[in-house]
Design a protein around this nucleic acid. Structure first.
Lengths: 186, 186, 186, 186
DNA sequence: AATGAATGAGTGTTCATTCAT
DNA sequence: CATGAATGAACACTCATTCAT
């Protein structure tokens, strides 16, 4: 339910009410609970749908091609996602910030497996001398953090940035590309 | 009140109860509200005390000395702060994520003034050819995001990183230094 | 509807839901309410059907024959009914316990008429010196109470009686016969 | 809480609302739940207080004295209790009727122990030829049923009995004494 | 005749806040 | 200063009933 994503992303699980979700969706509270039996169920459904969107770009990181270009493309996609689906990013941030109990199993199984595989690819690039000797995992952290930041900390960003959204993301892309492509050179 | 910081950082404003804060502080609920009249007041007090801790490192960014070294030292301090005061970081992240209404005025006045001043310093460095031509504001965003990430997304980080906290922060520092110092070279 | 009797007998009117009745009957909730417009209607229908089963044995109490034997046969039939139709007994007990609003009219008209007639028969037997000088109405109360008890208080009885159901009812019959036949001797 | 006993006795657990109990006690709903955290807790407290009242008369059944007189005195006390504390009787009846889940443990331990002991006393009397050869347990059932009936089935009794409450209980006592004292003669 | 969908009115429970002591 | 007691306003969830198909 898109309405639920809106609400959960804006206020977190505890701060959201079924009433808000229902009104947002143009239904009655009781009718929302007719489809999803509990508030937890709504949250779990929204979360699981969002998580897969979140993983997709990383899956496309492949060993072929230029390492720095690959990593930059991944970063760009994540930045784009922050712009296009900020709700999803905030939902995820809220969830993790408040303990991540609902995604704990996902993090430790699915995500861990995927991340381990991709870190191996990056490590291979490093071992081949095609990339600076960073820690692959922490490189991912840096990419995630610096791109999701634009979705998660939007109010702060809007308070400090003067100019429209287009210029904001152009500057973001420019700065990230410069630092990442230059910073990762072997 | 340190007890309130704990609670608000862990569960956000809406998720926290005065009862929890009181128990955490070893007082009665009524007594907490004797000092801070409302829950909002507790929150505002905790938030304002935390914000100043948050600004301090940035204030020390001075035009003298080597630009890249100065920026790296700032980044290092922020990373250290994430490790030493994760509660403060999470409190701030929760606040911004949920709209930032309570810090809106602060962001637009105090923080904006400080950030503008420091961006000017960085821009001067760039104009002098001593730093890569990044957008100063977005450089700050990258530094904030990539350091606070270690406090705000702790559950995710612990799920993906195998090893103790020391090695975690050593690798983080190593990776950040490499990318930032090399990425910012003119 | 037998399904409704099951549910109402087990949980009383307020404790039962139309959903439970429907599922128990293998229908949809909406379809149950297609036949019986409201929950009240279902209850009234079940109750009225049950009441007639409940009266039947008393109607067979006739002035002919041996008084004590007649009364014992009635008692035996009621005990048998408690065993064979405990649901009906519990439905009735629940209804009366919770005020008997739905059966009030029935009690004051149909039942009162029947009971008055039968009490007259018993009183005649007493006046003829063929029965101990009990109050006929209270004799009926004792018979009703002591037989329905086996249906209405089943959980208590099962907790205190060790042995199977056959032995339970044999002992019940034995004890009731002894006390009633000997106790009613003139 | 006397108010809770009133409400639970009249409508059973499911039929009662915390709101009713609160209004009946002259408090707010929230204040009732300040003392008893849940509806279940209120019910459990009321039930346990009532159960002990319920056991007391049986405890006084002693092996000394005339058996029939002892049993009659017990019956009389139970009848008196039905008159004086009908709420307690109805609370218990409602509980058992609806499965007795809340008193199950009590029935199987405390009550069973007490009943076993008292049944042994009665059995001894029978073995000594001082009492008719009834089943002691079922004698207790008959006494319980026929006395509690006056509390539990009050609406029915009032519909069938013409006359005031005094005459009602006089007739009840007369009839029960006659049948029990005569029926139990060896 | 049958059912999935929809909803208003409750119902138990939580919680920030007030008050008396 | 400190706290137990009290309460109105929410909130998640249930349920009898209605409606469209």
């Amino acid at each position: 339910m898109a309405a639920a994503l809106d609400v959960f992303a804006a206020q977190g699980y505890r701060g959201s009410t079924v009433e808000q979700i229902a009104r947002n969706a143009g239904m009655s509270k009781a009718n929302v609970l007719y489809y999803f039996h509990t508030k937890d169920d709504i949250y779990a459904a929204v979360l699981s749908r969002t998580l897969h969107v979140w993983l997709e770009p990383l899956e496309q990181l492949e060993p072929d091609g230029d390492p720095i270009e690959q990593i930059w493309q991944y970063t760009r996609q994540k930045l784009q996602l922050s712009r296009d689906a900020p709700h999803a990013s905030r939902l995820f941030a809220n969830e993790i910030l408040q303990g991540g109990n609902a995604v704990g199993p996902f993090l430790q199984s699915e995500l861990k497996t995927l991340v381990d595989a991709k870190c191996q690819i990056i490590q291979d690039w490093i071992d081949q001398g095609r990339l600076a000797a960073v820690s692959p995992l922490h490189l991912l952290f840096l990419i995630w953090a610096s791109t999701q930041h634009y979705a998660d900390f939007q109010p702060q960003i809007h308070a400090l940035h003067t100019g429209d959204e287009n210029s904001l993301y152009q500057q973001a892309e420019h700065t990230l590309r410069l630092i990442i492509t230059q910073g990762l050179k072997p």
